[in-house]
Design a protein around this nucleic acid. Sequence first.
DNA 1: CCAGACGTTGTT
DNA 2: GTCTGG
DNA 3: CCAGACGTTGTT
DNA 4: GTCTGG
Length: 223
Amino acid sequence: MCGRFAQVVKHNQLKKLIDELNIRNQDEQIELNFNVAPTHPIGAVMYKHEDRFLTFFRWGLIPGWSKEPSTQYSMINVRSESILEKKTFKNALLRRRCLIPATGFYEWRKPDKQPFFIHAKDDELLLMAGITEYWNGSDGSYIQSAAIITTNANDFMKPIHERMPVILPPDTWESWLTDSFQDPASLQSFLKPCADDILASYPVRKLVNSVNVNSEECLKPMV
DNA sequence: CCAGACGTTGTT
DNA sequence: GTCTGG
DNA sequence: CCAGACGTTGTT
DNA sequence: GTCTGG
């Protein structure tokens, strides 16, 4: 699955992202976060009509029908296999998708809880598939939230973990961020494990376990 | 029609 | 809100 | 995902 | 063990 990741977007990576995805608001900053945990704000690329924006969402999707923004129905991950069958997520997939740029993500190896950092072999950003939701409180409060779509592990990930985030390849970005693209079967076809040969990984120290630790140390290989 | 649920992962 | 179950 | 809490009444 | 908070 994907319960922790790093969003450390360097200036040149941000410029490239803005250019490649045709993002409109070019002044947006992304806070460096070496240890993104559920409930944290995450930068994500969202679309509205013909425009794309880099905006912030609470990680943990709060359904619009939820009375309170409680943790109970707040989902950090959504299974790709069943997303169209879930009433809470179907409309979000058809109409409120996003791309979540990540430096990489953490997985804890199943038997021994050893944390690993998984990143792009070429050190570019990984773009994870996400869905978003808007929640309005009766007192006028407003929260926009997001979840990461997950899929089966590819062969690269299997030794570490059975699930992984959906990482979208460049040839799907345009459709994913297009409002009018709402064909369920096509969207579903994007939600599969990424190619094995684009990823690299290494073990990291367990200081990443604590959500209170957010430093460059989280990304450093274990000695 | 109304009532009630609405979710994932991992572990056992 | 929207879908399922009764 | 992991870490940390897990509770009430009454009194100060 | 199970739930909440981050």
